[in-house]
């Protein structure tokens, strides 16, 4: 493979992986800390993308749209937690799946009513519209580089927040022993609301960032949800570090799976099968480590 094409695919894979991480980290945090399986998480990604599209059109500025969309998604997260999710903490997974599946249908219908079912695209903001030339014919878009940097900064910020702040300590304590955390004077209900809203905002933000590089379409939430569950399972449920490793792995496997043609004992493996490569990898990882790469050890 041409080294420049390899480099481009590598960058694409990393960028896709980082974007997946933003969505999956919220999913794994909400499951790891509150024990809630949130099927509606993909919907937040979809909502984010549609918000980016419609707010950019309304406000005439992508950056303002990002800011407004982020604030709106935090508010949405707080409201959803208060209305629905907090009733799920002490209930079993079946009820969680039923309610959050219902939320998928509601968000999908709302999206259809408010924004319609068409496919849209969002223009790359002029500031980042250029590309970096690699050879005479190949170039890499600046926006994609910027997107990866934003994701890395967010991931680093999240790591710092969870590992090195008092808020992070409280959140981790709450994940291991809810009752004891409360008895130390910490309002766990408020803490859970913050974590949920943060997860929603991350997923929506990922959708907003992705809007200029992929199209904005109705089924995008469900597509990303399935891949994010793969990320969470491979990474180890509840582990943010695991989500990062798994998301990068999946980003690279998926990207290279689409461009590399190779033969296995005489059979040509078609790029069309790339969609499967991620699931094949999940099967292999789970055979090797059934609890995922970074199983969280609480005890």
């Amino acid at each position: 493979m041409d080294p420049y094409i390899f480099l481009i695919q590598l960058l694409n894979g990393v960028q896709y992986g980082l974007l997946l991480f933003l969505v999956a980290s919220g999913l794994t945090l909400i499951f790891g800390i509150m024990g809630v399986i949130n099927l509606a998480h993909g919907s937040f990604y979809m909502l984010g993308a549609y918000l980016a599209w419609s707010l950019t059109a309304q406000l005439g500025n992508f950056w303002l749209a990002l800011l407004a969309g982020f604030v709106l998604s935090v508010v949405l997260g707080i409201l959803l937690e208060w209305l629905f999710i907090r009733h799920l903490y002490r209930r079993d997974h079946l009820q969680q799946v039923l309610l959050t599946y219902g939320l998928i249908l509601i968000f999908s219908e709302l999206r259809s009513i408010v924004w319609g079912d068409d496919v849209h695209s969002v223009a790359v903001p002029t500031l980042l519209a250029g590309s970096i030339p690699l050879t005479e014919t190949l170039a890499y878009p600046v926006y994609r580089v910027w997107l990866s940097i934003v994701c890395v900064v967010l991931a680093a910020g999240m790591y710092y927040l969870i590992q090195h702040t008092r808020l992070g300590m409280m959140v981790r304590a709450g994940a291991s022993n809810r009752e004891m955390t409360q008895s130390l004077g910490i309002d766990i209900g408020l803490l859970y609301r913050l974590v949920f809203a943060f997860g929603v905002a991350l997923a929506a933000f990922a959708g907003m960032l992705a809007a200029p590089v992929s199209s904005v379409f109705p089924g995008m939430g469900n597509q990303v949800l399935i891949i994010c569950f793969v990320v969470v399972v491979i990474g180890g449920i509840g582990s943010v570090k695991g989500a990062m490793a798994a998301a990068l792995l999946i980003g690279l496997v998926d990207t290279f799976g689409k461009v590399v043609e190779f033969e296995i004992s005489g059979f040509r493996v078609l790029p069309e099968l790339a969609g499967m490569s991620v699931f094949v990898m999940m099967a292999i990882v789970l055979l090797w480590r059934p609890e995922g790469l970074f199983a969280r050890r609480l005890r």
Binding site: M169, M170, S176, N177, M180
Partner: peptide
């Protein structure tokens, strides 16, 4: 409250158990 069975957060360091 100091509960029966102590209620230490095993996933936090000693310093973090105190600071939180």
């Amino acid at each position: 409250y100091v509960p029966e069975g102590r209620g230490i957060f095993p996933n936090l360091s000693v310093r973090e158990n105190l600071l939180m």
